[in-house]
Amino acid sequence: MEKEKLQWLFESMYRIRRFEETMLEQTFKGKSMGVTHSSDGQEAGPAGVCAHLTDKDWIGSTHRGHGHCIAKGLDTKKMMAEIFGKSTGQCKGKGGSMHIADFSKGMLGANAIVGASIPLAVGAALSSKYNGTENDSVGVAFFGDGATGQGVLHESMNLASIWKLPVIFVCENNHYAEATPVEYAVSIEDISDRAAAYSMPGVTADGMDVFDVYEVAGEAVNRARKGDGPTLIELKTFRYHGHFHADDPKKYRTPEEDEKWKDRDCLKIFEEKVIANNSMDLESIKKIKDLIDTEMIEAVEFAEKSPMPNIEELYSDVYVKYKD
């Protein structure tokens, strides 16, 4: 792997980790105006997938969407300001943590109805196919194991398959839908097996190992760009925190389970691998960490100092044009 790509993967994962930790700290200080859903633990997924995408590719995301935003290149200052409800936020403080979007970066928006963004990514791929730009612009639908219980996933996978659309369905199986364990709610062991029902390839990858995710996603994105249609990827992963900031996962998980996953932390695996094969050194890793640690302090400062939206903003942006 090229050095720049390697660094980018680490930067993205570390940036997501630090953003989530910082965002949670700020939430507990009362700086977030609502609920927040941390994705720490799951960083390898967004990083390994989005490493293959450009601003012309589109992603749909979920209520646990900060990682997808960061991996798609969104500005952490504007993201933090959005969570603080400030006018400088990515959506002018009108969307909040669960609705961060940046259309200039190919980010169709985090979506707080479970599964609801999946057909949007299919629609973005339909646009590409309609305009003959599949090679340039694919759609990626990120969703969790919880969304596999939603009917719209079935509809979306079927449509993508019959129309051979350039879509990658990425199921981040973090093993819990809110407080419901996956083995209770999902009828099969590997969610990727469901791909067979839509005659598309289905593959399960280690969602804690960014190199594994990177490889699997690369194949799927290439397939889509070549016009060979959709792929379902399942990433086995784990969220370190509860469903939302105030949810204590100890109420439904054992400490042993947490420890088992944390032993396989994506940053730890990455560092061990790159040091072992000499592709990065500790010094360059530390340099990246220091830069991002500073970036987080600056993001909080930016959000803190930014003004609240004007009350008139309540009424704007409902329509492009409603009444004269």
């Binding site: 589109w58 590409s128 305009n131």
Partner: peptide
Amino acid sequence: DTPISEAGVLGAAIGAALTGT
């Protein structure tokens, strides 16, 4: 022509509308 998938089809149409058609 589409399958009988109102939510999927409307969702895809919204995604298409958001991306320039």
